[in-house]
Write a protein that binds this DNA or RNA. Structure first.
Length: 422
RNA sequence: GUGGGUGUAGCUCAGGUGGUUAGAGCGCAGGAUUGUGGCUCCUGAGGUCGUGGGUUCAAAUCCCAUCACUCACCCCA
């Protein structure tokens, strides 16, 4: 076959898909415990949403979007990130009329046209939260704490929380001027000399030798925050200290999207090679207005599930015990026996056990073989003789023991055996 | 978008300096006398040697291109 999954995409097959399901389910529980509710937004949106929301000078919009015209001539874009769609939905559905702040979570694929590498895909999966309708530092702390909780819940500890404030519409322009001034008098790399005017904050993030060398002399945004932002940021830090969540101030942390304001944070690990951000987020107080909505400050994060699961696997936490098949039905005989076996299996399933049987009309021996390879806990064997007597052989595949039970006693016997095990 | 590495059965890999029917282990399918797994033994299926060109009497092997994977840059989840 010469058809392949497109570059940067992949199939998630069993047993990996079991791990994904497990992770998603467990994260969802954490959200629900904190009274976050799910939102599902379209996988594609009008292109303009991202151009306006994410920012037209960002890398995402400039070169990473999957954009196309649909048959009606509309410009459509596969969503590259989750926040702008959620805020769009918030405005469109007038969620500001509900009790505030509105706390949402989402799961789903995101699309970016990038060169794939470890932990980076063209279709990747994120889960994230957005708290919209409030600018209290309590919200910032709650969101960051939630990220912290998820990592802890999965016993991950090889990461650091990087924290910064990138100010607001009042103070950031002042800082940006200072920054431009500073960089103009220094030598920066080729990419960055272009950036100085268009998006000077990003120079801070540059890892190239000459730019990185400037880091400790570069003016820090934290020295230019207006009183309101400064106070807000101080409170966020205090709250994190109260919650005993360790963090590291990092004034070079600038998120790539334009809509961020004030608090910005990333949970980074050293285990994933160059793609080290596992959770990234921050506050976006102006986004709603940017999209034509009312003033509705918000705060959220995105968590990269591909990277998250990669990290779990690195720590051998990926070998999660998946539930083994409980019963494999083995029939020995003609059609009448198979039919009765089928009925028995249906009853076993109805009683709450997972059950399967041979679907290839194999010999008894090969049915047993199959049961063994699948890892079934029990086999229930039915032959002509058993059928006549109304019994089955119940075999414990782990212990190799086998006993005869009446068909009507089977469920009871299974319950007893599995009860003993646990 | 830029640079490095890789590309032989489902998986992990062998296949010096080009030479005839491309191999192994594992896995998969079946069998080793009456209706029973795991161990052992036997048998079998399965390969456009990533793809397309080129050099050559002859290419998995050399050259070019292309695609994919991978690592890094860039950027982020």
């Amino acid at each position: 076959m010469n058809l392949k999954a497109p570059r940067g995409t992949r199939d998630i097959l069993p047993p990996a898909s079991e791990v994904w399901d497990y992770v998603e389910t467990r994260i969802k529980k954490i959200y629900r415990k904190r009274n976050f509710l799910e939102i599902r937004t379209p996988i594609f949106e009008e292109t303009d949403l991202f151009v306006r929301g994410v920012g037209d000078t960002t890398d995402i919009v400039e070169k990473e979007m999957y954009t196309f015209n649909d048959k009606g001539g509309r410009s459509i874009t596969l969503r590259p990130e989750g926040t702008a769609p959620v805020v769009r939905a918030y405005i469109e559905n007038k969620l500001y009329g509900k009790p505030q702040p509105f706390k949402l979570f989402y799961f789903g694929p995101m699309f970016r046209y990038e060169r794939p590498q470890a932990g980076r895909f063209r279709q990747h999966y994120q889960t994230g939260v957005e708290v919209i309708g409030g600018d209290s530092p309590l919200i910032d702390a709650e969101v960051i704490a939630l990220g912290n909780d998820i990592l802890r819940e999965f016993s991950m500890d090889n990461w650091k929380l990087h924290l910064n404030s990138i100010g607001c519409r009042e103070c950031r322009p002042v800082y940006i001027e200072k920054l431009k001034e500073f960089f103009r008098n220094e030598t920066v790399c080729r990419d960055c000399s272009d950036r100085i005017d268009r998006n000077p904050l990003r120079v801070l993030d540059c890892k190239s030798g000459e730019c990185a060398a400037l880091k400790n002399r570069t003016p820090s945004i934290l020295d230019y925050l207006c009183p309101a932002c400064s106070e807000h940021f101080a409170q966020v830090q205090q709250l994190l200290e109260t919650l005993e969540i360790p963090f590291e101030l990092d004034h070079t942390l600038v998120r790539g999207l334009d809509y961020y304001s004030r608090t910005a944070f990333e949970f980074k690990t050293r285990e994933l090679g160059a793609q080290d951000t596992i959770i990234g987020g921050g506050r976006y107080d102006g986004l709603s207005e940017l999209l034509g909505g009312p003033s509705s400050p918000g705060m959220g994060f995105g968590l990269g599930l591909d990277r998250f699961i990669l990290m779990l696997e690195n720590n051998r936490l990926g070998n999660l015990e998946t539930n083994p098949l409980e019963v494999f039905m083995v029939t020995i005989g003609e059609e009448n026996v198979q039919k009765e076996g089928w009925r028995i299996m249906a009853r076993v399933r109805k009683a709450g056990f997972s059950a399967d049987m041979d679907l290839l009309q194999r010999s008894p021996k090969n049915q047993m073989k199959a049961a063994n390879r699948i890892g079934a806990r029990f086999t229930v064997i039915l032959g002509e003789d058993e059928l006549k007597q109304g019994v089955v052989q119940l075999k414990d595949m782990y212990e190799g023991t086998q006993s005869e039970v009446r068909i009507e006693e089977l469920i009871h016997a299974l319950e007893k055996k599995t009860g003993e095990g646990n």
